[in-house]
Amino acid sequence: MINLINISKSYGENHAVRSFDLTIETAETTVLIGPSGCGKSTILRTIIGLISPDTGKVNIEGEALSTANLVSLRQKMGYVIQEGGLFPNLSAEGNVFLMARYLGWDKDRIEERIDELCELTKFPKDALNRYPIQISGGQRQRLSLMRALMLDPNILLLDEPLGALDPLIRSELQQDLKEIFSTLGKTVVMVTHDMGEAAFFGDKIVLIKDGQIIQEGNISDLIKTPSNPFVTTFINAQRNHLEIIGDI
């Protein structure tokens, strides 16, 4: 469980997040959604300690995030970003086992874990010794996921993980990701601006605007009992054109 308590963060005059409270349930997938600049990424980056909030605190499984336990808590979380954030100086495999080797895992244990992860994420084993620059965008995201999962963290944070992919690869990866989440049963927090993706993944959807939560709940709550006209506007704006044609 992750608790965000009274989080505020501003950059000069710009209030990115205002008195933000949120509880993220264990083993559920929570999707943070909202228009660009609404503060959803700020929230995710606050959870992993890349941003320190002006006020409020973050509890990770009951432990308050602080500079003292930052490094150890980060090792219990996996973090995947849009372009993968892969290290260009390391091979695919090097990216994945970096932390394990840093923490002193032995070779066999590392190899075993990489085999498992290749299978799970459908990353081709023969591409393991390639470098990030040599592999495709979809594979990079699979690799980034492998890296995030290497230490088998309880929590997985994903910041628009599919945002930079073309539609075919994106839809294939969506399927695979959903399968992975349900296999692993991890606490997942995903940031997206795509309502379809949010509906597809989210056990809970948190709609954010101007640094504050507008509504949280599952997709049918949001559609059937919107707390605010903005909820409907946001959902309708994202309805697929094909779907609208189909309705006629």
């Binding site: 890349l50 150890s72 808590l73 979380m77 290290f87 932390m99």
Partner: peptide, 13 residues
């Protein structure tokens, strides 16, 4: 920044 934050988020000192 992506690469730096990824390294940081992994829990490297």
């Amino acid at each position: 920044r992506d690469i730096q934050e990824s390294a940081e988020a992994l829990g490297l000192t």
